[in-house]
């Protein structure tokens, strides 16, 4: 009977491992990490694989010892156990071994964390009078509320009073869209996250970007997209997905009420600034238009475009 139990332990653990391997080996299943589309995403993924490798090693080693022991040392086995109370050398060894592994992980994590979060933190750009945060190509204010994301795109230069003034008041010409994040490939995007009601969390899986929004605070974030998934077609007046048809979504990752799950947005990465500018220009014209006829012909041709109307 003891064989049965050791086999059970072996089977369950191997099944768990197998599930991971299958999920990794068959990307078509969609059971593994989603597309990665930012510099930060690639680094986080590498780190993820590093940790997975180390964990897999410890997992196999410890579970292997456990299962082997169950197989090898049942009460029915001949002989009797030896009364060992401990072994200082072993203790020191197996204190240091995991410590080394963990230090490796820490060492690998630090630069990525620094890259992801220290940039612009604490936010000097918010305090001073800089028109733009240093090295940012694009500034987007994300205002979360129950239950959607309002994104404000700066369409002209920011006011002299600084970016905080822009975030609070803004320009009349700013483009405000719900739930659509438009950037272009290679742009250094500076996001300002805030909320009007409760804590939300701006989660873009494809960018491996996640940051809570705190009531009363404006939190800066940075990212740089490395893959594009759409382009703007001026002839059709709408955003056209690439052949790969990657649909990248934005979600809320912090419970924000009954409709928490409903805070869905989309990420559109344009191939270049030109495409983005064309989209911005088009959307602005749609938004600022004072003539019905300028908008009507395309009024119901595409929701992508219509979504930009606000």
């Amino acid at each position: 009977m003891h064989r049965f139990w050791s086999l059970l332990f072996a089977a369950v653990n191997m099944a768990c491992l197998a599930l991971l391997v299958v999920a990794y080996a068959y990307p078509g299943l969609g059971w593994w990490l989603p597309d990665s589309a930012s510099t930060q995403a690639n680094e986080i993924d590498s780190l993820f694989y590093l940790i997975t490798g180390l964990c897999a090693f410890f997992f196999v080693a410890t579970q292997g010892i456990l299962i082997y022991s169950l197989w090898r040392f049942p009460s029915t086995a001949p002989g009797s156990p030896s009364p060992i109370h401990g072994h200082p050398g072993l203790e020191i060894g197996w204190t240091i071994a995991p410590l080394v592994g963990l230090l490796v992980i820490t060492a690998a994590s630090l630069p990525v964390w620094k890259e992801a979060r220290y940039q612009g933190f604490p936010p000097p750009a918010l305090e001073g009078t800089n028109p733009l945060p240093p090295e940012a190509d694009q500034v987007i204010l994300v205002t979360a509320r129950q239950w959607d994301w309002h994104l404000k795109y700066a369409t002209e230069s920011l006011p002299a009073e600084g970016i905080r003034q822009w975030a609070s008041v803004g320009n009349p010409s700013d483009l405000i869209i719900a739930n659509e994040l438009h950037v272009w490939k290679g742009a250094k995007v500076s996001l300002l996250l805030r909320t009007t009601d409760v804590i939300h969390s701006f989660f873009v899986p494809a960018l491996r970007l996640k940051q809570d929004t705190l009531p009363g605070k404006t939190i800066p974030m940075r990212f740089e997209a490395t893959v594009s998934n759409v382009r703007f077609d001026p002839a059709e007046g709408r955003v056209v997905p690439n052949e790969t048809k990657a649909s990248w979504e934005i979600a809320c990752a912090e419970l924000c009420g009954g409709n928490h799950f409903r805070m869905r947005g989309k990420l559109f990465v344009h191939p270049d600034r030109k495409s983005y500018d064309a989209w911005l220009d088009h959307s602005r014209r749609q938004t600022r238009s004072r003539s019905l006829t300028a908008m009507l012909p395309n009024a119901s041709s595409s929701n992508q475009k219509e979504g930009a109307l606000q």
Partner: peptide, 26 residues
């Protein structure tokens, strides 16, 4: 013991801050 190994190892992912960016609240 066997399950605590899995639980302990999966905790390491959260300890690493960058990976936690992605793993957090999932």
């Amino acid at each position: 013991i066997s399950m605590f190994i899995i639980g302990g190892l999966s905790g390491i992912y959260m300890a690493s801050t960058p990976v936690d960016i992605y793993i957090h609240d999932t």
